[in-house]
């Protein structure tokens, strides 16, 4: 049932995009992430799996400093993006988030038209010189988000009027419209039906040609289908990190084995 991951891609691309060392996260007094060190490769899909509350989403949100918006959250350790510390004082979290885009669990289209949803990022970052260029970015992003054919005739209809799966693809298209280098996805399919899930997974597979994708998922089948690398989190610790095929067939840690065979979690 576990597909063999695309080894060619992971072998030919060994650039480290994100390098996290000894990351600790505290919510107030609660130590949510303990000593997590992980290397995320470029042009690869990396899956974070683990039971609820294990810290995988929290760790994901550290990678684009989304945790800054939570007052009581404190992050320690170093996270390097292309060798640059993203928690350095000189780094503007707003600029960082343009480079490290994020897609959330629940589709969250803005209360605007489909076009304006996609154009939002390019507009605030000044990526288009004129209307024609913006139109082009919107079309390209929607095509890459596999949504163009469904919405090309109603670009000015509200984005909230789309179906759940379409909304999520809209959010993905919106995230890639800003040309990020890394795309973080926090359980992007948990609110979707199987057909929409399949469409989004297909999309993730295409996206890895251009981006480094990190996906948090509760579905081990999904992790096996879409990712090349998998990290297993348990109680705030990174238990095991390696090739997806190896994690799912020959895990080194007994806890990983227990989780993927359904004994814990």
């Amino acid at each position: 049932m576990f597909d063999t991951p695309n080894r060619e891609a992971s072998v030919s691309q060994t650039d480290i995009k994100i390098n996290a060392r000894d990351v600790q996260v505290f919510y107030g007094d609660n130590h949510a992430i303990k000593d997590v060190s992980v290397d995320i490769e470029d042009k690869t899909v990396t899956a974070f799996i683990g039971p609820s509350g294990c810290g995988k989403s929290t760790f994901l949100r550290c990678l684009n400093r989304m945790n800054d918006t939570i007052d009581i959250c404190r992050v320690e350790g170093t996270i390097l993006l292309d060798g640059e510390d993203i928690y350095d004082k000189s780094v503007d979290p707003v600029q960082l988030r343009a480079k490290v885009g994020m897609v959330f669990q629940k589709p969250n289209p803005f209360p605007k038209s489909i076009y304006d949803n996609i154009a939002y990022g390019p507009r605030i970052h000044g990526l288009a010189r004129n209307k024609a260029e913006l139109d082009e970015i919107v079309e390209k992003s929607l095509r890459r988000g596999a949504l163009w054919d469904e919405v090309k005739d109603r670009l000015h209809a509200p984005g909230t009027g789309l179906s759940g799966g379409q909304q999520q693809r809209l959010c993905i298209a919106r995230a890639i419209a800003t040309e990020p280098e890394v795309l973080l996805m926090d359980e992007p399919c948990s609110a979707l039906d199987p057909i929409a899930t399949a469409q989004v997974e297909e999309l993730i597979d295409e996206l890895k040609q251009n981006f480094s994708v990190v996906i948090v998922t509760h579905s081990m089948q999904q992790a096996a289908r879409v990712s090349q690398k998998t990290a297993f989190f348990h109680l705030g610790n990174l238990v095991e990190y390696g090739e997806t095929g190896q994690i799912f067939t020959k895990p080194n840690d007994p806890r990983t084995e227990s989780y993927i065979t359904g004994r814990i979690g």
Partner: peptide, 26 residues
């Protein structure tokens, strides 16, 4: 919903951009 704010922050919007373009219209 906080999700809308997260969405805008996740695209690299500043706080006032988020409020002006996403929160207030909603």
């Amino acid at each position: 919903p906080q999700a809308l704010r997260d969405g805008a922050y996740g695209l690299g919007a500043t706080k006032s951009e988020t409020i002006r373009q996403v929160v207030l219209p909603a």
